[in-house]
Amino acid sequence: MRFSVLQFPGANSDQDCLHAVRVLGHEARYLWHKESEIGGTDAVLVPGGFSYGDYLRAGAIARFSPIMQALVRFANEGGLVLGICNGFQILCEAGLLPGALIRNRELHFRCEHVFLKIANPETPFTRVAPDSGVIRVPIAHGEGCYFADQETLSRLTESRRILWQYCDQEGTPSEDANPNGSVQNIAGVCNEKGNVAGLMPHPERACEPVIGSAEGASVLESMIQTLSERGQH
C-alpha cells in the first residue's frame, strides 16, 4: 500500500508516521502542505505536531492549507484518512470530523501510555483489533479533551462512530483512565461514511516493542487490510 503523510510547518510526528508505515512493510511519502493534489495514494495520514505553532487554536490555520482542499476531495471520494493528535484536531477544525478538542482538564500537557478500548471493531481503522479489545499506546498532547454537544454525541453513539475510548487495563472506560477530561472518555471518532477517523493517542508511536509497545500497529494494519480488500495496492 502507498500512504501519504501530510507535512505542515510545525508538524513533528510526520517522521513517526512514515517510519511506522515502513516498519509494517508498506510505502510512505510526504505530501507538502503547499501541494494542491493528493496524487497516487491509497491512504492519507494527517500527523501530529504543532502545525503553524498551533497558534490561534490547534489545527485552525492548517485546515486552510492548499493540501487540505485536496484532502477534502480525497475523503469525499471515499479515500481512507486518519488524523492523529494534531491531525485529529485539524480534521475537526476542517469539519471532516465532528466535535472539537479543548485544553486538557488538568491544564497540563500530558505524555504517558494509556489503554484504549476498541469501541467498534468493525471499521477500517479497528478491524485488526486484538481479542482483548484493548490496546496500549502513548498520548502526548495539551489540548486533547474531546468535546461535542449532546446531539452530536447521541448521533455518534447510535451510529457506532466512537472508535476508541480511554479505559483501564481491563477495558473499562473509567474516570481514572481518562487523561484529559474527554466527554465519554472519547479518544477517537470517525465520520458518517466511516472512511475518515481521528484520535488523540499515537498508534504510530507504538508499532515496535523496542519503543515500549507494538499494539498501535493494529490501527495501521486495519487500514492496510481494508485497502487490500478494496484491491488497492
Partner: peptide, 13 residues
Amino acid sequence: TPKKAVLDPQGKA
C-alpha cells in the same frame, strides 16, 4: 470566549 456549555478548566483554575 468558550461557550457556556463547554468546560473551561483554565477559568476554573
